[in-house]
Write a protein that binds this DNA or RNA. Structure first.
Lengths: 335, 335
DNA sequence: CTGTTAGCGCTTTCAT
DNA sequence: ATGAAAGCGCTAACAG
């Protein structure tokens, strides 16, 4: 009643063919004659046979499963990445299991440990904002399987990672504002411990320097995690006179800033240009004229997943790690 | 190198204790003395032992894993439900695997079949919009394990389901508009084959009738799936004179309608009241004054998951199915 | 091309 | 309280 009891042995008995042959036939091995194969397949169908993957996995020491660790699936960027991963994984015959870290190191460690005990064949991970210690990942690599990092850069060598060229994206965004004539550009940034924000800030600064615009520390707003930061940012801006451009590399605070302004009935003046680092449709709705930096999210998923599969399937052949840096695209919306 | 080779037999040999005792100790069985238990636990730690779940699962015929089928994780409502599920599942010692159907019946069938072969202990599913045939689910129930449906109602008996009282939510939303003085209320609806939209439409109609307001078919806009429908809706509204209220039970088209209007620079006049069926922050941003129907998303996840776990753990004791209908809450934003 | 045999690592009677 | 032994269902040498 409970379970689908038909096993290869049932087929084996019914047909008087050894179970190993049945197994081979079911796996479409070339070492079985077409005749017996057909016979077996027919019988299998008839008995409603379904392979017991647990047994198969135990035997082969392979689960054909990829573990994904993601900060949170509700963020548009990440859910697109996941879709890209799924697509690639399924095509290659892999399943995926997803776990959310919710930006907590502790949860991330638990997830990785769960994936390890569940013997996923490899790991795709975008580290949490809290993650500065990488023991759990080193451990997974030694005892579990290959790891590919996506989106958030890590200060580690000998790992494959698929990231976005944040520096360049930031540089271009800032350059875009400068070319529109902006001279006083505020930058919404994030905690500098996180490489991503650091790189973006550096891109911003580089663009200013290149165009001989003085870098003013009071134009750089560094958010912690909370959304309150956005409100603070908005208030600060309102008190500043000369601002003619905003470049945000931090969605969360930018959105909350905009919401705050909107709630107050304040519109960002037309003569202030805004560029946001954002794949979320919400930003386009708040500011239809916002120029956005488009990140290749789905593509990032496909590439990261493909890399991981390559690593899994080639075994530990000491192949060189092949990290990739993807480019972004500046989407300029017209009013 | 590849795998964490330590097994219970290694511990067994190292300590000259039978592997069965080791197994018992590791599972904290009361039938092992505290002394040997401590000894074994210490050794296990020392050797970096990690249980091979695959073997354990094979033996026990249980994976401690719950399969979740969701139309798409990027929708805010669903990602909240998932968070609720995860929370409950982890607390009870279950893992979850998530699969997206992308509103396609075919993908849904594949997912369910994958979950079946992977021997998940039970299934939580919100069916795709295409799903009118339920064989894959009947099949899962017979050969796999219990199923709990969440959010989207299904025309099946003998299944547990956690849904929202769409009729009442709709009724209340419409009533709210009527009480604000609206007499010409447009309703954004969806395909009537889908029970959810049908129930919502019925709630809308019931409220009108109750208050002696004529039901006009030309006020009911039925969307297919595409976002274009929203644009059509917006255009229609612009051509109608008397409209003083909008009640949307269909997020997708409502949002696209609003985006269209916004892009055209048209604001919904203050004298038109809008109620939306929406847990998505995007709507609040588009229309800060929008009154929304708040659905208990996270809670739905916890309840559905708990129900499923109960079903899994009680076995097939023919316990009655306990479906639940959750209530919504009308969130009235003040200008 | 097919059969024999052994075993993946764990759990679980059944003895003792 | 512990040990012996069997087996979950599948796959993979190795023979023939």
């Amino acid at each position: 009643m409970k379970s689908n009891k038909t096993t290869i042995h049932d087929i084996s008995k019914a047909l008087n063919i050894d179970s190993s042959t049945v197994s081979r036939a079911l796996n479409d091995s070339p070492r079985v004659s077409k005749k017996t194969k057909d016979l077996i397949l027919k019988k299998a169908q008839e008995l409603g046979y379904q392979k017991n993957i647990l047994a198969s996995n135990l035997r082969t020491q392979k689960t054909n499963t990829i573990g994904i660790v993601v900060p949170r699936i509700s963020r548009n960027f990440f859910s697109s990445v996941i879709s890209g991963i799924e697509e690639t994984a399924y095509k290659a015959g892999y399943n995926v299991v997803i776990g959310q870290s919710f930006e907590s190191l502790e949860r991330e460690q638990k997830l990785v440990s769960t994936f390890l005990s569940n013997r996923v064949d490899g790991l795709l991970i975008s580290i949490s904002m809290e993650t500065t210690d990488f023991n759990h990942l080193e451990n997974f690599k030694t005892h579990g399987g290959p790891i590919v990092f996506y989106d958030r850069p890590v200060p580690l060598n000998n790992y494959t990672s698929i990231t976005i060229n944040d520096f360049e994206a930031s540089y271009n965004a800032t350059k875009h504002l400068i070319e529109k004539g902006c001279k006083h550009i505020v930058h919404f940034s994030g905690i500098q411990k996180i490489l991503l924000y650091k790189n973006r800030k550096e891109g911003y600064i580089a663009a200013l320097k290149k165009h001989n615009i003085p870098v003013r520390e009071d134009y750089i707003f560094e958010a912690k995690l909370s959304e309150n930061d956005g409100v603070e940012f908005a208030k600060k801006i309102l008190q500043m006179d000369q601002i003619d451009g905003i470049y945000s590399s931090n969605d969360t605070s930018a959105i909350s800033a905009m919401q705050y302004l909107k709630a107050k009935g304040i519109r960002i003046p037309q003569d202030i240009s805004v560029v946001g680092f954002n794949n979320d449709p919400i930003s386009a709705v708040i500011e239809p004229n916002l120029t956005t930096i488009n990140q290749p999210d789905f593509e990032m998923g496909t590439i990261a997943c493909q890399q991981l599969i390559d690593l899994i399937e080639q075994g530990n052949n000491h192949k060189e790690q092949q990290s990739k840096v993807l480019q972004t695209e500046l989407i300029i919306r017209k009013s």
